[in-house]
């Protein structure tokens, strides 16, 4: 199911993983300030798969109903970023952000707003850091809260050629001391991936110096 031609060299794949890692680490630091507990991250996974496979990768881990905050980004490269977690974690996350004193009803009332704001801070933090490192601005859509299973999260919307191969990035996160865990996921379609590739190559030559990257001493 994996795309046969993985359009990234070893070092480019490495650079992309590192970019995402830096972006998500910053985003986690912002989330930590919101929830007051440590946010634990996994090492990012970067894969080229078709859309169905991306949905399957999440569905294999999560049988529950999911809730996600989604933001589309557009610029030198475009795609969709999602903050995803099991729906049953949702109110716990709202309490973590807005305060434990909230009643169940109060938490439910502000659920959408609190989730959108949390998603906005996490996804913006991640994407803005990546854009800065690549030196290209990205325009971000407003955050939208969606519910459904993996398939719905990745196929929702007006993305043309919905069967195409996408670049799929995801990181697991968990909040220490609370029953909250989820994923930060990013999808990019292939034309975007090609432009991203150019930027990654620029990024590599900028940070390693113009000379050919060597293994060092």
């Amino acid at each position: 199911m994996t795309g046969s031609e993985i359009p990234l060299s070893g070092l480019e794949h490495d650079a992309l993983t590192e970019l995402v890692n830096i972006g998500v680490s910053r985003a986690a630091s912002s989330l930590r300030q919101m929830v007051g507990e440590q946010v634990i991250l996994s090492v990012p996974s970067v894969q080229v798969v078709d859309r169905q496979m991306a949905a399957t990768l999440i569905r294999q881990r999560e049988t529950d109903q999911l809730i996600a905050v989604r933001q589309d980004f557009d610029g030198a490269f475009s795609g969709r970023a999602l903050l995803i977690f099991p729906e049953r974690n949702s109110l716990e996350l709202v309490r973590a952000v807005a305060g434990d004193t909230l009643s169940c009803n109060e938490a439910r009332e502000m659920e959408e707003e609190a989730l959108a704001e949390t998603g906005n801070i996490v996804l913006n933090g991640c994407l803005a850091t990546m854009a800065n490192l690549l030196r290209r601005p990205l325009t971000l859509s407003l955050p939208q809260v969606i519910r459904g299973d993996g398939r719905l999260l990745f196929e929702l919307g007006e993305v043309p050629g919905g069967d195409g191969v996408v670049l799929f990035l995801y990181i697991n996160f968990a909040i220490s001391g609370r029953d909250i865990r989820g994923y930060i996921a990013m999808l990019m379609d292939l034309p975007s991936l090609e432009s991203l590739n150019v930027l990654i190559r620029e990024f590599i030559s900028r940070i390693t110096g113009a000379e050919e990257a060597s293994d060092g001493a």
């Binding site: 490495d14 390693t208 110096g209 293994d215």
Partner: peptide, 28 residues
């Protein structure tokens, strides 16, 4: 000793180090 799972990150640290202390040795 530079420890990073990203080869690129090791190259970047190595380069920064070489700029600051060109005579220091590096292991990865």
């Amino acid at each position: 000793l530079i420890v990073d799972d990203s080869k690129l990150a090791r190259i970047v640290v190595g380069k920064a180090l070489a700029a600051l202390r060109p005579d220091w040795l590096r292991l990865e």
